[in-house]
């Protein structure tokens, strides 16, 4: 388990936080806190994919200090809640592997498009690597974004006819309009 530099909320050290609460109102508070904790954790650690089967590898779901773990089924149900607001999506039918969007795909898309518009980069082709890892985007929130998530965000722009994604074997790029 790797050390994580994150400011844990008080709930993280609260043992019952790791047991799904029977009382509906309490449970809803609990789930809300979990949703926000998962997103914060993924953002801080740049975790784009969570495999629920290996959840105990992630400190967020496993607080060794108090010996409490979040159960598999509870994690899935919270991820399903995140999915409702576009903050997560399952990658397989069994809902084992999940992509986490601490910014929704739409938010990522508009960040990228704003950057491109400000730079007057429309009508030129840029490689995905250049955009996500290039020197120019070092200060941008989307710098270092994982390719799979990046492409999904660009597909959002594509549907709005604001770009065209080019996925050739030798060159993955995008042309903005």
């Amino acid at each position: 388990m790797s050390e994580v530099d994150i400011e844990w909320p008080w709930q993280y050290s609260f043992p019952p936080f790791f047991t799904l609460q029977p009382h509906p109102e309490t449970r809803s508070k609990q789930v809300t806190a979990w949703k926000s904790l998962i997103l914060t954790y993924c953002q801080k650690t740049k975790t784009y994919v969570i495999d629920v089967r290996e959840a105990s590898q992630f400190p967020v779901f496993n607080n060794a200090a108090i010996n409490r773990k979040l159960e598999h089924s509870v994690i899935v149900s919270i991820l399903c809640e995140l999915q409702k607001h576009g903050n997560a999506a399952p990658l397989d039918k069994a809902k084992n592997r999940w992509e986490i969007y601490w910014h929704t795909l739409e938010e990522w898309a508009s960040m990228v498009y704003e950057f491109v518009s400000n730079r007057g980069m429309q009508n030129t082709v840029v490689t995905l690597y250049e955009l996500a890892h290039g020197e120019d985007t070092r200060e941008e929130e989307f710098h270092g974004i994982q390719q799979e998530v990046f492409v999904k965000a660009l597909r959002v722009l594509e549907r709005e006819r604001k770009c065209e994604v080019i996925m050739d074997d030798d060159m993955q790029g995008v042309k903005f309009f």
Partner: peptide, 28 residues
């Protein structure tokens, strides 16, 4: 007290069910 939303249950204690009160929990 659980049904009033005042207590939370912890089922991961090996011995028995624990009842926690966030209003008394220092970190909270």
């Amino acid at each position: 007290m659980v049904n009033q939303g005042l207590a939370w249950v912890d089922l991961q204690n090996p011995q028995e069910k624990l009842y926690y009160f966030p209003s008394l929990f220092t970190a909270c």
